[in-house]
Write a protein that binds this DNA or RNA. Structure first.
Lengths: 191, 191
DNA sequence: AATTTTATTGAACAGGTGTACAGTAAAATC
DNA sequence: GATTTTACTGTACACCTGTTCAATAAAATT
């Protein structure tokens, strides 16, 4: 069998316990022992499923990044995301997504946390761009490198946002992104 | 006094021990006890200077990112780095820097390591861009947000490079970056 | 050179980590 | 419903962590 009821029950208990403890302290300060105490699960059982507390959190976070992809496949207007002239603030769902799961992204972007979560987010955005822009190929430009560039550029804005405690509005960031992406076409003459 | 000889000696011993152990295992697998054994320093002494092994590595890494800034202030041709039309592959020193300290960046970009090092690199590049581009201000665009966008975009390329085990040449990446940055001006019509 | 200051040491402590293994209990399978 | 399979438990062990504190030794200061 693929899903033993005992496994489901154990994982659920650990999940709930982690969320509980995350209200009290930061991820890096949480011990396996503490989670197991709260979940009423033997410590050895924890190691049957995970190696560190971080792996338990990783399970959550993968669900969240999956939601990001889903929000793009909605019967929403699914338009090219970063194609210069056609870029529409309404079609950018990323900042909206981050704000929705602000509670988790505060953890993901905290400096003591492993890079792993960053890569999960990066890969998700990169994949969206790779699919979205497969039609728009540029000569002499490595398409994947280009998408890595763009995906991480967006995360650069998100990092700034995070460091300002998510104080900008989603609308403002959408508008800024459109302006930034459209810069070169108007700047190629000046400066 | 600012620099007690004992402190210098202790830190040197710890530094050397860390480098030694880093040849054998990854940063996250190194224990404080192990470093102190090799350095012949009491474990309590370690805690007088650092809280974790990661902080010891941080000291190294700050020297490395400082070298990145220095390479820009050289009597080299110090030209605007990312201004579209004036961008010259020779003036881009970032990929060169990364390759030079490849050994360290392999650690910095490994997924188990804390985000902190990423932020140190990000901030260094961002500061370079902030200074470099203070002349080129765009209306309606938050200058800092713009630099965060560009700085992290470059790191996006570096991440790709890292995940391909630094197999691209520095020259190739410089040329790709120039092409990508110059895209919009030629793309605003097509697509 | 004698005195003062302070970094380092060593020992000890409560707690967490990671692993192993036999015993138990709760699933799945028949 | 009886049997087989396997997830979980409890215990134990060696080791690492983070902290405290009096004793020591190596600096700086006079």
């Amino acid at each position: 069998m693929r899903t033993d009821l005992r496994v489901i029950k154990t994982k659920e208990a650990l999940h709930n316990a982690l969320l509980e403890v995350l209200d009290e302290k930061s991820l890096d300060a949480i011990s396996i022992t503490e989670i197991c105490r709260k979940a009423k699960v033997n410590r050895g059982t924890f190691y049957l499923h995970y190696a560190q507390v971080e792996e338990l959190f990783e399970e959550y976070f993968k669900e969240i990044t999956a939601d990001l992809a889903r929000s793009y496949q909605e019967p929403y207007r699914h338009v090219t995301v970063l194609n210069t002239k056609e870029l529409n603030p309404d079609t950018i769902r990323i900042f909206h997504h981050i704000e929705k799961y602000k509670r988790f992204y505060r953890i993901v972007f905290s400096k003591k946390v492993p890079l792993l979560y960053y890569y999960l987010l990066f890969e998700e955005i990169k994949q969206l761009l790779l699919k979205d822009q497969e039609a728009i190929l540029h000569e002499d430009i490595d398409h994947e490198l280009h998408c890595s560039y763009q995906a991480n550029a967006i995360i650069g804005i998100i990092i700034d946002w995070y460091h300002k405690d998510f104080s900008y509005s989603v609308d403002y960031l959408n508008r800024q992104l459109v302006q930034i992406v459209n810069i070169q076409s108007s700047n190629s003459t000046g400066a």
